[in-house]
């Protein structure tokens, strides 16, 4: 009874399951906002809890209790379903990440492809979420999100395949295990792939310089314009979970995953690495300015795709592989 029901239930619901992931989502958003604020010589959230650490939670709670508006002219089914999907999809993908120890909660040979598929699916739902509201700002924002995906999806996939070729495994847990066995981080062998993955994740997360789909100065709130109240709360939660997913995936694929250093438990090592990746995202977000959609697409196809192919070629030639 204890082994078959209680322990798996605790693992899925509390640690390293839903409760832990939600806490991480709020924590990473706070880290991100605070870092960007410090780089801009501000304080950032300060008075909500100690150093403002409860700010994302307060935002979430406030949005949950607000009036739930369904504007006339929207496709009701998609409008209601999209925020749920946007927060559920990254949560699903996070179960495949090995947070503590060598293997994740759920893992099988080929779960790397499932993660890629989920990343694409999130953008598809974003497109539907904006498109179904028929507001002109949302439609422009969502079509930009879909267009942007055409640019970064292929280099992102190639950059994820690099570590898989190296480890000879198509499972994220397997790649993490290979790095632990050989005592080396993939980033040292394939720095190019790491840089490409970080860039593409910025685009996936819609962070500056790739916040084209929600460019506030041009198209109000982008594809989120018509969402308010608890739907917006779910959209924001989904975005935070995506941030957790992006940093956890980069950690697992390129930064050695959940290895045990000395007597520090593997989960703390993993969280420290995730924090580093988030700090990198925030730094890039704070120092760049927004590109236009044409610059972004042509830049991705002119530089990122050839570089990603060169990285794969190098691995095939035995350099960094």
């Amino acid at each position: 009874m204890l082994d078959t029901v209680v322990i798996p239930l605790v693992m899925f619901l509390i640690f390293p399951g839903v409760a832990f992931l939600l806490a991480m989502a709020f924590f990473l958003e706070w880290i991100d906002r605070k870092t960007v604020a410090r780089i801009q010589r501000r304080y950032g959230p300060l008075h909500t809890g100690p150093s403002g650490i409860l700010q994302p939670f307060a935002d979430f709670l406030k949005l949950l209790q607000k009036e739930d508006i369904i504007p006339t002219g929207v496709d009701k089914k998609v409008f209601i379903l999209a925020p749920i999907l946007i927060s559920a999809l990254p949560l699903t993908a996070l179960f495949l990440i090995p947070f503590a120890g060598p293997s994740a909660l759920v893992w099988f040979e080929g779960d790397l492809f499932l993660i890629m598929f989920i990343f694409t699916l999130i953008v598809l739902v974003v497109f539907l979420a904006g498109y179904c509201t028929t507001s002109r700002f949302s439609v422009i924002g969502s079509s930009r999100a879909a267009l942007q995906m055409l640019g970064y999806e292929i280099p992102m996939g190639l950059a994820m395949i690099g570590p898989a070729l190296l480890a000879g495994s198509l499972s994220i847990s397997g790649i993490g295990q290979w790095q632990m066995d050989n005592g080396i981080w993939t980033v040292l062998l394939q720095p190019l792939g790491f840089a490409i993955l970080v860039t593409c994740m910025l685009a996936e997360l819609e962070f500056v310089p790739f916040d084209i789909p929600e460019a506030e100065t041009e198209i109000v709130g982008g594809w989120r314009t018509e969402y308010g109240g608890r739907k917006l709360a779910l959209l924001k939660l989904g975005h935070d979970l995506e941030l957790v997913l992006a940093s956890a995936l980069i950690t697992a694929l390129y930064l050695g995953g959940a290895q045990q250093i000395w007597i520090i438990p593997s989960i703390f090592v993993f969280l420290a690495k995730m924090l580093l990746v988030t700090l990198l995202f925030s730094l890039l977000r704070a120092v760049f300015a927004r590109m236009s959609i044409a610059q972004m697409l042509s830049g991705m196809w002119k530089y990122m795709v050839p570089l990603a192919i060169i990285q794969i070629l190098l691995i095939q030639l035995g350099i960094g592989g």
């Binding site: 604020a37 304080y43 935002d59 406030k62 709130g221």
Partner: peptide
């Protein structure tokens, strides 16, 4: 702006009226 930084109080400028309080 950064000089006064109202994000200290959790105040954020939103573009859409649906997001605002």
């Amino acid at each position: 702006t950064p000089k006064y930084d109202v994000e200290r109080f959790g105040i954020v400028l939103e573009g859409s009226p649906r997001h605002a309080d």
